[in-house]
Computed example of a mutant assay.
Amino acid sequence: MKKVHWFVLLLCLALSPVFQSCDDGDGYSIGDFTPPLWATVRVGGGAFYLDCDVWGTLWPVNTDMGWYTPVDGQRVITYFNPLWDNYEGYDHAVKILGIQNVLTKQVETLTPETDEEFGNDSVTIYQGDISISGGYMNIIFLQNLPAKEKHRISLVRPQDDAELYGEDGYVHLELRYNDYDDVTGYGNWGAVSYNLSSLNFTDATKGIKLKLNSSVNGEVEVAFDFVSSDDEGEGSSEKGLQRNVDLSKIQLK
């Protein structure tokens, strides 16, 4: 089967009604599919599955995915047709309808020596396009595409733990962007997902405060408050991305 380009899949998704998750007793139909969702690839035993931030573990039943090379820990945006619940130790068996790798990075340390390399150029991020789920900070933004050199986008922490873990109960991070003075004026969607496992979150941690240089609002600090499962509310299990994005032209490192 020929590979279907991601933007074609997204166009189909945009023209179709959003599927809402069913109870176990409702079952699924071949026409049911999710909105685009964040997930992490897990590889083992010569096979792979997805650990979806919303749906849990997903076993793909596709026989036509020979074109896709799974890498353990790779973050992806995916949408799928759910088929069965509680399938052989996985939360769901699914037919993957679209999957696209997203730049996956670790939190790095900001030092006087690395400050210039991380840069601090402005970036365009729309409200709601930064989220924290599955142990990752996920960011969708509008990239001013480069002509030659890939831009660098980094999530950094201060060297001093006392600055990282503030007295206000928040973990303090900063988003840094370096366009290397190489921009074309042509925009396209970019995406990145940062693994937060290197940070020490406790029951007392209120959330994350993120500094960034916004192309619209200048240097700002945005707070992301953690909520307990009891506070998430009914219907929170189906949270798709706010917009369909084609990441085929992304130029990031």
Rank of each mutant, 00 (worst) to 15 (best):
W189F: 15
V227W: 06
G134N: 11
D182K: 01
K2S: 13
M1P: 07
V107M: 08
N213F: 12
K150M: 07
G187A: 09
V41I: 15
E88R: 15
I130Q: 07
L247E: 00
E167R: 08
V4E: 14
E113T: 10
L50F: 13
Y136H: 15
P158S: 08
K249W: 09
N178Y: 01
H151W: 03
Q74L: 12
L9T: 09
Q106K: 13
N195F: 09
W84N: 11
N217V: 03
T109R: 09
H151E: 07
P17V: 04
G218H: 10
V18Q: 13
N217G: 00
D179K: 10
T111G: 07
Y87S: 08
W189E: 07
E234L: 13
A14Q: 13
V220W: 11
F226C: 07
P17R: 11
E108W: 02
P82M: 07
P17I: 05
S214W: 06
Y126D: 13
S237R: 11
G187Q: 08
A223G: 01
P17L: 07
L196C: 05
K209H: 08
E221P: 00
A204E: 15
Y90V: 05
Y90F: 15
L50G: 03
G27Q: 04
H92I: 01
V61W: 05
E234I: 10
S236D: 07
I96H: 04
Y68M: 05
E163W: 01
P70V: 03
D179Q: 07
L15F: 14
A191C: 13
K105D: 10
V123K: 01
R157Q: 14
Q242I: 08
G166T: 04
F7A: 06
I130V: 15
F201M: 09
F7L: 12
V76C: 05
H5N: 14
V18P: 01
D182H: 02
I30L: 15
F33N: 03
D179T: 08
G135D: 04
Q106A: 10
S193H: 07
A191Y: 04
Y165Q: 06
F7M: 10
G56H: 09
P112H: 08
K239P: 00
L142S: 14
D121P: 04
